[in-house]
């Protein structure tokens, strides 16, 4: 008696049902994700949030180093040899940036200013740069600035592209060369026009200590200098 090929054992039929339902579910989920991603459109990403602590004292006044005293004048007779400020309280430079929830991790290089007066950015988008004229992370005041490419020619997306997924309260950790670490939590994300970044307070040297992560944000206009905005994520030191 020839076996009918379409007859299957109940077990196998059950497997098929499960597989079929599973496949449909996967398909449905993928459709959902597709719709979500596609409809959310680009370059609009998750919205900005939070407010940035920016109460910089009147440090733009270079004469503030002088303590205000009442007249008539009485000069101190034997001042220290040099009237420069004392160095930072904690001078160990940063070595690694990480955002554990996002699995984001990048080595940190000190960077300066290029010939055009712009911040240098490490060419390797898997590395980030600490603007070495900003306070070291862990300093008592000011904005410690870390920059990184969002993408780079021939190298794909940069590690700081992950900042698009950052959420309020995310933990950010800066490991320092001396083996210690400074922990932060994200309080704000802003999309700032390229022209407005310098005046945005991201580079303030005084005021509350914050970590400021900067990369690029769309829209991308190839004929108009590329990215039009910077993505600026601000984190405050976490009390741990």
């Amino acid at each position: 008696m020839p076996e009918r090929p379409t007859v299957m054992s109940p077990q196998r039929t059950g497997h098929r049902t499960i597989l079929g339902v599973a496949a449909l579910l996967v398909g449905a989920v993928l459709c959902g994700v597709f719709a979500f991603v596609a409809l959310r459109g680009h370059p609009t990403r998750a919205a900005d949030f939070g407010t940035v602590p920016t109460t910089e004292p009147s440090s733009s006044d270079p004469t503030r180093a002088a303590p205000a005293r009442d007249s008539p004048p009485s000069w101190p007779s034997t001042a220290p040899a040099d009237s420069g400020p004392s160095g930072p309280a904690d001078p160990s430079p940063p070595e690694e940036l990480s955002v554990p929830r996002l699995g984001l991790r990048a080595p940190v290089d000190p960077v300066g200013v290029d010939d055009d007066g712009l911040t240098e950015v490490p060419p390797d988008p898997d590395r980030v740069g600490w603007y070495r004229f900003s306070p070291e992370p862990g300093s008592p005041e000011g904005s410690s600035v870390v920059v990184g490419h969002v993408d780079a020619e021939g190298r794909g997306l940069g590690v700081l592209n992950g900042l698009n997924e950052v959420r309020r309260g995310d933990r950010v950790v800066i490991a320092r060369r001396d083996g210690s670490a400074v922990a932060y939590r994200v309080v704000a994300r802003r999309t700032v026009g390229k022209e407005d970044l310098a005046g945005s307070g991201a580079f303030r040297r005084g005021g509350p200590p914050v970590l400021t992560l900067i990369t690029c944000a769309g829209p991308y206009l190839p004929d108009n200098g590329g990215y039009q905005n910077n993505l600026v994520v601000t984190a405050v030191e976490a009390s741990e």
Partner: peptide, 14 residues
């Protein structure tokens, strides 16, 4: 402050 942060390349991320 520096004039800006040129942290973009190809536009892929946008």
């Amino acid at each position: 402050a520096p004039g800006g942060v040129p942290a973009g390349g190809t536009g892929q991320a946008a």
